[in-house]
Write a protein that binds this DNA or RNA. Structure first.
Lengths: 234, 234
DNA sequence: GTCCTCCTGTGGTCCAACCACACTGTAGGC
DNA sequence: GCCTACAGTGTGGTTGGACCACAGGAGGAC
């Protein structure tokens, strides 16, 4: 077993045992190196991995926000991992889209009509309705948050994280795709209307209809942008 | 931007551009450090991250298998990330199980009856039927491979990878759970029968029935082991 | 031809040093 | 008494160098 894996195992053990929790701080790198009788280099390699996994955040300086603190951002880890494997062309973009449809339509069908996340989703929709002064990038940013809020309303943290990571993994492609659209304003209007319809269905407790609308919403967008379900290559 | 992220960006760019593909070898650490005008330490940190993501594999020595070669093992990355976040108690085990049910039942419903992966699944089932000389660990190992083969038959690499990572993330718990079972032999017999029923349904093209059987199969196991859908804590 | 040895190149590990940063306490001016 | 300026302290960030273990390949000894 390599040295940095020993450090990883130690930290994971601390997490599992509850001696280290979200918000807590890891010992300083030099201290940890001395404690575990390894070099600071190995400690740093382990911390880098945890950072890439969204488990810790390293901050320089001093004070309460400095040092290496435990966080929990599963979406970051899954997102970058998926993006890299898409880059190796071992994960087709079409599969990503299909999985996104699966997860989001399930979430829409299972979302509780009184979930607080729906209020946030409604607020985001209101923001997207302000046609004036809203660039394509701004619109898509709000769109991402709307979909994430909607997925979170189902109350399954794993599904939320995975759905967010899928979106993140193909974010680059999604941005490019907008340039393929014949008429962005028309598309944006349609997306807005579909968003409202989805939210209404969820609010009325009609999960089946919500799920169907979400699936059509996502598939429709990618097909309009030229990334049909048949294309297996980026 | 930190130095190791520069290295990461360079490698990801090489992958996206196709100048680096699965099976290819990265330049040696010292060479890469010199090329990018950074220290070897920073190069190593980047490679560590890629290794944790299942994108590369580092091998010492010389020869065709040595050096840092590009691979593609998305399951490893997602699995360890999920496991760590389960350790931080920000991803409830119940959500993992629920997501697994969602993905696997979808895959069972969508699997093509003539998919070659089903032959492998059948072979694994035959192996599990050899009751003699099969330890609990062996049985579970075959079980993992059976479920993965079944999920792969749907032809969606993302769903397969995610399903495998979910299983891996709670593998430790699953092993512990077997000790809660009142009668392992009886449970094993039931699991065998359910496996055959699932495979039969898929082979006959009855996706709906297969999906239902898979959902019942997974939920039944965890409930029998004392991890009901209601438990939100490990 | 076969075996053995040395050489080379790879990642793995460690150390020592320096930097940039952000807070903290203190000394000084007002 | 208050506020400012500054040195101090502890944090991660980065670098260069050195040495180790490992595995294959090239060459010589037989």
């Amino acid at each position: 077993m390599r040295t940095h894996q020993l450090v990883l195992a130690w930290i994971e053990d601390q997490l599992s045992a509850g001696r280290l929790a979200v918000g807590g701080r890891l010992p300083a790198e030099r201290t940890l190196a001395e404690q575990l009788k390894v070099s600071r280099t190995s400690v740093r390699e382990a911390i880098r991995i945890l950072e890439a996994m969204g488990v810790v955040r390293a901050g320089v300086g001093s004070g309460p926000d400095a040092g290496t603190v435990v966080i929990s951002d599963p979406t970051a880890a899954l997102g970058s991992a998926l993006r890299l494997h898409v880059a190796t062309q071992h994960l087709p973009v079409a599969d990503i889209v299909e999985t996104r449809v699966l997860l989001e339509s399930w979430a829409a069908g299972k979302a509780r009509p009184d979930a607080p996340e729906l209020d946030e989703a409604a607020a985001l929709l209101a923001g997207m309705d302000q046609a004036e002064g809203l660039s394509v990038g701004d619109f898509l940013a709000l769109d991402v948050r709307f979909h994430f809020a909607l997925a979170s309303a189902a109350g399954n943290a794993v599904v939320s994280a995975m759905m967010g990571s899928l979106r993140e993994a193909i974010q680059g492609y999604a941005a490019e795709l907008t340039s393929n659209l014949p008429d962005w304003d028309a598309t944006a209007s349609r997306l807005r209307a579909e968003h409202h319809a989805i939210l209404d269905a969820v609010r009325k407790g009609d999960g089946g209809r919500a799920a169907g609308l979400v699936a059509a919403h996502i598939e429709g967008y990618y097909q309009e942008a030229g990334l049909g379900a048949g294309s297996r290559e980026p």
